[in-house]
Structure formats: C-alpha cells, structure tokens
C-alpha cells in the first residue's frame, strides 16, 4: 500500500497555488490535510499526475468570526476550528459536530475545507455547511467566486469546483433569530463515519413557539440534503411540539441505500429517531438562547 508516483508542487502563496493548478489542470489534485486523500493514494484508488500541496499557504490557516458568520480558511485544521472559542461562542454547532469527525489525531491534520471539498456524503461538515446555507469561495487564475453550498455539492465526492480552482475558504452563517442547533449521529464505532447523522436547526418566535425547523443528514443519500421540517411542528410550544412527526416527515423524504453496515430501512428508522431527538434538543437550546 504505497502511493503511485506524482509530480509534486508546493506553492508558497495562494497566487502560486492557482497558477500551478492552472498549469497542470485537469491533472492536478490539491493536497491539504490528506486524511481522506492519502488513504486513497496509498491504496492506489487515486493516482493523480500532479499533487499541489497547499500546506505552506499559511495565509489560509485561519478561523475568522465576523459578526454573523464564521469563515474557515483552507489550511485551518479541524482541531483549529473545534478549539476556536470565538467560533464556539457564536456557532457552537461547529464544535459539537467536529467532535464526531473521526478521532482527535485525524482532526489535528485534516482540514475543514478539505473535507468539504472532498464532498463525502458521510462527511459531517458538508451537511453542516448545507444546513446553515453556507458558501464556499473558490479561486483560480480566472478570478474568485463564491458558491452557495446547495450549488457547491453536485454529487457523491463531486463538487462544482473546476480542476484549476482552489477552495480557499468556507463560510458558515450563524442562523438568524432565536435558534438552537444540534448534531447527533449513530456510528458503528466511536469515531467512524455515521450510519446516520443529522444536524437540526430550530428557530423559535418570541413566545417560544416553533417558527422553523431544518435538518441535514450524512450517509442518507448521495449528497447532503436539507429538509424543511417546519410544517410538522410550526406554532407548537418548544417543549410540546410533535418532534416525532418531524422525524417521520424527514424519514419519508430521505432515500438512503443499504451498505455493509446497515440496511436502508434501518437508516430511515434512525433518521426518524435522531431527527426527533435532535430537534427536541435544538428547541430546548433555542429556548434558553
């Protein structure tokens, strides 16, 4: 299990990086933390001709909190985001979710942007970005563009990023209003990819009645889907809403697949149970927010 050979590039600036990507496109692949990519390389399931290592782009090693959004640069490790107190203060969902991403040693190296650019349908951060209606910023020699999460993910392991584009950052907006957000998942082993995972954001009005509820999932379909659950619970008091109905609504709209760890039926059942649990918890959080 040793990777095939590749031409190696280690640009020192973002400008250099996009220049290299343009030059080698479409045969280039960006290497950031490598926690998803290097296993594929070691197993020779991927063998890009060119590897563009962005680990020197320290200008992208940041977590910025800017009022109502958290922006994460492409070289911020999961652990940097997880342990960023300012980010936690405005958007605790990030830390709460990151604690479910593999194990600390992986989070020490893996980057949040990298896992989003990898677009694994089992990747928690892809779901969170979609759930929050976040954006990804892409740079190339042709310029910079910002893409909504819903448009960014185009299928399992595929995004709208062109081969010459570098995802330089992602932005997680803080939900507006009186909201609570919760991530929960069931995994076979602690730290494994979830069999089913869901993040739920619940918004309450001033009377603590449910004004809105949205959820997103991992391992429940080819790409992260956001569901609006509001219809099942709108207007109910936060501690009296029929969250089970929200769970049923969610399960009815997801079409998971069987795999070696779980049947589709079990996944749907988990989606129902976990959605209800997470939504109830999120509502309680919103009530004290």
């Amino acid at each position: 299990m040793k990777p095939a050979g590749f031409a190696y590039h280690r640009p020192a600036t973002v400008d250099d990086a996009v220049a290299v990507l343009a030059e080698v496109s479409p045969a280039g692949k960006v290497l950031a933390g490598g926690q998803s990519l290097v296993p594929l390389l070691n197993m020779r399931l991927a063998a890009p001709e060119h590897l563009v290592d962005i680990n020197r782009l320290t200008e992208l090693a940041y977590v910025r909190v800017d009022g109502d959004e958290v922006t994460v640069g492409a070289l911020a490790r999961h652990a940097d985001v997880e342990h960023d107190d300012a980010a936690y203060a405005v958007l605790p969902l990030l830390r709460d979710t990151l604690e479910h991403v593999a194990h600390p040693t992986i989070r020490n190296r893996g980057t949040t942007v990298g896992s989003i650019a990898h677009a694994d349908p089992a990747g928690e951060l892809t779901a969170v970005l979609t759930l929050l209606g976040g954006t990804a910023t892409l740079r190339s020699m042709r310029g910079e563009r910002t893409v909504a999460a819903a448009d960014f993910f185009t299928g399992p392991l595929t995004t709208c990023a062109d081969a010459d584009e570098l995802v330089t950052s992602v932005t997680f907006p803080v939900p507006e209003g009186r909201t609570g957000a919760v991530w929960t998942e069931v995994a076979r082993r602690h730290g494994d990819y979830a069999v089913c995972g869901t993040g739920v954001v619940v918004t309450l009005d001033d009377d603590l009645r449910v004004a809105g509820a949205r959820s997103a999932y991992v391992s429940m379909g080819p790409e992260p889907a956001v569901l609006d659950l509001t219809d099942a619970v709108a207007g109910a008091m936060y501690d009296d809403a029929d969250w089970a109905a929200a769970g049923r609504l969610a399960a009815g709209r997801l079409e998971p697949d069987d795999d070696i760890h779980a049947t589709a039926a079990y996944r749907s059942h988990l989606a129902e149970v976990l959605t209800a649990r997470a939504a109830g918890d999120a509502a309680r959080r919103a009530a004290v927010a």
């Binding site: 299990m1 190696y8 490598g34 290097v38 296993p39 070691n42 194990h103 040693t105 992986i106």
Partner: peptide
C-alpha cells in the same frame, strides 16, 4: 494499516499527534 485507522504510526509533529502514514 497505512490508511490512517489503526494509529500505530502516530508521531508528534510540532507537538500534535498525527498519523505519519497519511503524510508525505
């Protein structure tokens, strides 16, 4: 394992534990 799961290859890089099988 050489795919980052077993942790036998863990070393500290600048003080942080990482999987050395997943780094060039």
């Amino acid at each position: 394992c050489e795919h980052g799961v077993c942790g036998a290859c863990t070393v500290l890089v600048d003080g942080r534990p990482i999987r050395s099988c997943l780094q060039f």
